[in-house]
Each structure stands twice: as C-alpha cells, then as structure tokens.
Design a protein around this nucleic acid. Structure first.
Lengths: 163, 163
DNA sequence: TATGTATGAATGAATG
DNA sequence: CATTCATTCATACATA
C-alpha cells in the first residue's frame, strides 16, 4: 500500500521524521483512550501497536507518546478552559489567543556569555576526579543531594521572579 | 537579583523553569557518563556541578537528575532485544542532517556565547580528555538527541532504540 | 509561498 | 532506580 506517511499531502520522500497516525489508527487509539486505560502498560502498548501496525506503520514508541500527549492535552485543556482559577496558579503569560509563542523561544543557554567565556582559564579545577575516580562508594548516606532532591536551596534556578 | 538565566539579553524573556543544559555542559556530562562512572556520588555531583556551573546555570539537582535520566534511558534501549527484530532497513537513523540544531539555533541574534565557550573548551589542556569530541559530527554519545523519532515498527518499548 | 495551527517527540523534573 | 508527568520544540498539515 501507499506509504501511510506520505499518504496525505505528503511530498516528503526523504524523511519520515514524525509519525503520522492514520485515521484508522487514530480511531482505535481514541477508543482505547476512552476506555479509561489512561496509562497502558507496556504489554498493552505492545498489543495496541500490534493492532495499529496492521493499519499502518507505527511503533510502540508512537503509541506510548500518543497516550502521553493525549492525557496531557486533556488535562491542560480542562484547567485552562475552566471558568477561572483564583488559585495560586500563576500562568506564565500562557494561553493567549495565539498561545504559540514558541516562535521566538529562547529556551536554552543565554547565560552571561561574556562572563563565563572569559573565566575559561580556570575551568578545569578538579575534573580529574573522574579520571581516577574508582571509588565504588556510592552514596554513603541516603540523601541524593544536599538534603533533598527538591532543591539545594542555595541556588534556586527556577526562580519565578515574576511579580 | 538578576536571574543568570535571563541575564543575557536583558529582555523580558520568561525565565525557563526548566534547566536547559548548554552544549558545553552536555558535553561534559556526556564525557563523565561515558567514563563509566555511572552514578556519581554526592560528592561527585558537587564536583561536576562546580564545573558545569561555570558553563551556565546549573544545580546539583540538575546534574543528579540528568544522570538519573540518562541511566534510565540507556537501560531502556538496552532491553529492547526480545521478540522484536523485524527489519532494520532504516538507513543510518543516527546521523541526522542536523544534530542538536535546536541547541544552537533558534534565535536570530546569535550571541555566539556558547560558541566561544566551545572553542575555549577545546583549547583547555586540562579538559582535553573531555574535549576529544570537538567535532560535532564525531560526537560519540549524541544518541540521546538523535533524530530517530519513531518510524521503526520493530522497536519495543517507548524508547527509541538506537543500537 | 508563507504563516498559523495541531500534534508528535524530546527531555527535565516529580513520584513511587 | 523505574516509571510517569509536565513543558517545550519541531514538524506535519491546513489555510490565506
């Protein structure tokens, strides 16, 4: 049969980056989702995949992702379309009519480049520890980090300096 | 105080609540992970953090989480060998036209900050052991950011088996 | 053709 | 340590 990937408007013959669920697959997936099987086990995933694969190319990864996305989407929609939440829920300038503000996203880096680039002369203080680190001593204690994994406390990177 | 994360351009960009490792940080982390150190101890975490913090905002928690995620992910792809093995007629699914392009390109101002750091990394004598991968193409451990989404059909779990 | 929207996919963080 | 959730990005896809 025709490649399910390029079955629609496709003109992409070189790259199948994103799995595109066929209507049939979508129908099945939605039905299963509707069953209440929110987070299917791996076994279920396999079974579902086995079913869907007959209707087009698909992998367990796709199925898994689909369910994850589906659930997340539903949830987000719920609390986003509600009347109004006077709770402590602060939305980061979220759902604007556009919503897709990621067009100019700057998620990563953007540190004090001019700064950290210059202090480069001292960038290898004790990194050699991993060269000789043969200490099988895992975690002497039980604490994973400095106290709890919530946050060290000293440097809170996620500082909602919103105001 | 000023958040190091958004202290760059000085715009009103919303601070990312999620830590995004800079290419440099990623390289270092990869190297350490590749050393076979596996799960670093608390002290190691601190050491690593001390090193990485010079290359951008980061906390011990981030480092810890990173290793945890990395470990889990590696394992996932490892245990993908049972009743699968359908066909692997996929071309080199690894090397994509572009690797971590998202890490280096999404804005238009291009501060070249990380770029400089990258260069500095190479020239660092002490960090030579972890600077061996100056060539992005020769990146040995970029399996996590490869672009082999999911069009396999023969893989098992929701993990992108990479081989 | 370019822009916008929808959704799959990647990853960091949280939880058990 | 294993699994799941939440957030964000990139790309498929629809429309102007």
């Amino acid at each position: 049969y025709c490649d399910p990937l390029m079955a629609s408007a496709g003109h992409k013959i070189t790259a199948r980056q994103r799995w595109t669920p066929t209507p049939v697959q979508l129908q099945i997936l939605e039905r299963i989702f509707d069953q209440g099987t929110g987070t299917p086990s791996k076994q279920n995933i396999k079974e579902i995949t086995s079913e869907l694969i007959q209707h087009g190319q698909i992998s367990e990864t796709n199925v898994y992702n689909w369910f994850q996305n589906r659930r997340a989407r539903s949830k987000r929609k719920q609390l986003g379309s509600s009347s109004n939440n006077a709770e402590s829920e602060q939305e980061t300038e979220v759902e604007s009519p556009n919503e897709k503000k990621n067009l100019l996203s700057q998620q990563n880096h953007a540190p004090s480049a001019e700064d950290l680039c210059f202090q480069n002369l001292e960038i290898s203080p004790e990194l050699h520890f991993l060269s000789v680190m043969s200490n099988p001593n895992a975690y002497d204690g039980d604490e994973h980090l400095s106290g709890k994994m919530g946050m060290p406390g000293n440097y809170n990177i996620y500082d909602q300096a919103e105001d």
